[in-house]
Nucleic acid binder design. Sequence first.
DNA 1: TAGTGGTCTAGACCACGTG
DNA 2: ACGTGGTCTAGACCACTAT
Lengths: 262, 262
Amino acid sequence: MTSNPPSSAPASTANDRGEGSGARSPTFSPLYQQIKALITQGLENGEWKPGEIIPSEVELAGRYKVSQGTVRKAIDELAAENLLVRRQGKGTFVATHTEDRVQFRFLRLLPDDGGSLVHDSRLVECRRLRAPAEIARQLELKPADPAVLIRRVLAFEHAPIVLDEIWLPGGMFKGLTIERLASYEGPLYAMFETEFGTRMIRASEKIRAVAAEAPVAELLGVETGFPLLSVERVSYTYGDRPVEVRRGWYVTTRYFYQNDLS
Amino acid sequence: MTSNPPSSAPASTANDRGEGSGARSPTFSPLYQQIKALITQGLENGEWKPGEIIPSEVELAGRYKVSQGTVRKAIDELAAENLLVRRQGKGTFVATHTEDRVQFRFLRLLPDDGGSLVHDSRLVECRRLRAPAEIARQLELKPADPAVLIRRVLAFEHAPIVLDEIWLPGGMFKGLTIERLASYEGPLYAMFETEFGTRMIRASEKIRAVAAEAPVAELLGVETGFPLLSVERVSYTYGDRPVEVRRGWYVTTRYFYQNDLS
DNA sequence: TAGTGGTCTAGACCACGTG
DNA sequence: ACGTGGTCTAGACCACTAT
């Protein structure tokens, strides 16, 4: 009673690409994962840049010699990871930090009540120096490698709320000066993406409560010893390569850090 | 050039179930979303209890008169939301708080270094009383409705690290006493699930840094004014109904709150 | 060996955006 | 009218688990 396949054999047992040796299943990976890796490569190579459209599902299916459904599943996962954005009727686009509502994805600070979300950034300093051992370790730099240190204060409604201390690998951010930072409008990550070709895709944060030390307290306009939220972030690009270490101090009297567990 | 459908018509234009009126697309919802809602109903009704297996994809497909692929997509989403757990070769199971690694899903506290994750709970009190207005509002209770208040201290390696103040709707947790709490082994949410049939599926937290007030400081063994992480959580069951309001104070000197942005 | 979820395919049709 | 993603179907085969 079972009907035979229409014709045109699937040609392989399912695992042609990748996995050099002829082993059966020890290093098995589904086709759509391999396609996902190929697309990720294209993103990493800059073949498709942030904001641009990528080829349609049917075209990719043709290019990789798989069915549209397989490409679809690959793109589904990349969209779930916020690397791509699907727009029905238009196409699939490379996600970007510029026009997104990243306000809530990477700065999870919300006002207690009618407070505003618009904020402006005041640069405290931006200089190049050897990274301290701990920072170098987290950025996977050699001890002598140069680094960039940015310090800035974020103010909401003219009140300083966040002090950030940002460490970047110097080699990746050549030509980053305080003037250039000051002249750029919009989120820092958008600038990193458009000006330096580095796209943050993931971050991991360690959150603590600490007492404000004198220099920090002064910049934030609070008393020494005032309780602050300490946020240590490491951000990663493609391939889980760390490209930013950020230490933040938040004044959480009228704003709070929002997190959803699910 | 287009070949006709094999036979056996799909019978409808795509939207038979739900949406009472004959309107075309104003309230359109995909089939798999409707299936998802039906399965969620089964979970809510207790038709399949936590830890139990649900019917196989083919059986559900038959029951709902849709293809296996449609059921699969519905289950995919429920699994992504941690309501179901798929186990290849065995079946699909209702997620549970008992044997899960929920240690990391609902208590995101990690040690700085070799510290331990095992902790024990010391109950401070458990009593029934009118909920304060603010708590009642968050739990969507009427002002006169009774509530349960639990206070407890979590200790890691014999050091008190977390003080929790937990508010529950009294009607939903009849018979919850301090003795019963004390005699239960394992996570609180596991107890709520097995003893009271209430399963937490989602929570939202507001995080701040605060100065320890005297009573809190005493229970945690720190000085008054010591910076503590304040975590205000509202937990929800099926249908986004709030069923728990929890206020936690964390000592974050050797432990930190871990959060991943992606 | 049988049953379950997991992958892959091919094709039809719908909904959306644009010319 | 056309192309894009979105939904739905049907069937084949693979991988894992149990018996």
